[in-house]
Amino acid sequence: MTTPVLELKNLTVDIPTRFGTLRPVDDVSWSIDAGEILGVVGESGAGKSMTGNAVIGLLDSPAHISGGQVLLEGERIDRLKLSDMRRIRGKRIGMVFQDPLTSLNPLLTIGEQLSETILRHLDVSNAEADARAIRGLDEVGIPSAKNRMGAYPHEFSGGMRQRVVIALALCAEPTLLIADEPTTALDVSVQAQITALLKRLCRERGMAAMLVTHDMGVIAETADRVAVMYAGRLAEIGPVSQIVGQPRHPYTDGLMASTPAASAGQARLRQIPGAMPRLGKLPDGCAFHPRCPFVQDKCRHDPGPKVGIADDRAACWFPLDAQEDVA
């Protein structure tokens, strides 16, 4: 068996506060293989962005990894020194964030930013770095890339800027890409372009990607496997067809059903009552139990189990497929 590109083993993140310790990421484990896109979905406060930040070592103090391991190609990176981590970021892990403007330096041309990043991470000549930069821009679909090298970020439209950010993330040929809500700030037509681009690049380069988003539609179209997070815990993980088509965790089921796209033509949307609990006030047992339509006594006391095989499981005492058998 090949080593996965990224593997999380029981990753836990704690934020100590004066009112007690919050746990935005609680015992999360999964792996991403080369060429695979893992979609991480959840609503705000689910801990999905925090998980991504924990992987790349960008947790804001006082948040810190309090347990578990992060393995990049079999090598532990959660205990690395800041300087070593900085070398890994950009070189082996590329990052794309929601707002393309904050990821680019407004005072440097995009050519300078790309070449500089390439020179920092790869042992190549200046001319070679420029050539690679042009190739990178070409690859992400920037028209007449050679002429655009001297342009500043503000001269690009939102969609083009996000393409530049992707080129920047990929220029040092990382093995893992972490994209945190990469299309949320973009219009629908541009969003479709960017997701198609991400899909193509992962396939062509055999790169693993972790795609964090709240948009079920984007996940359904882009990801190979999906991890659903709820209140810092992994609710369900599995292949995209399984998660979208036959969810087993009641939360996943409710989430999919409440997407307006899923109930086109119906008078009412199906809704999950209530809201995600705040981190400081997690209920006992399964965190979803107060909102769950199938809640039973056991759910109120025992946190959900991890059922199923390693990369296809739902953290629910009474997963939906099992229930149908009973009924």
Partner: peptide, 21 residues
């Protein structure tokens, strides 16, 4: 309509729309 992501469309391979506003 074509660009809007759909839930039932995993693995859908559609040419994305061209150009921007």
């Amino acid at each position: 309509i074509d660009a809007a992501p759909r839930l039932d469309a995993f693995g859908r391979e559609v040419e994305p729309p061209e150009g921007e506003i």
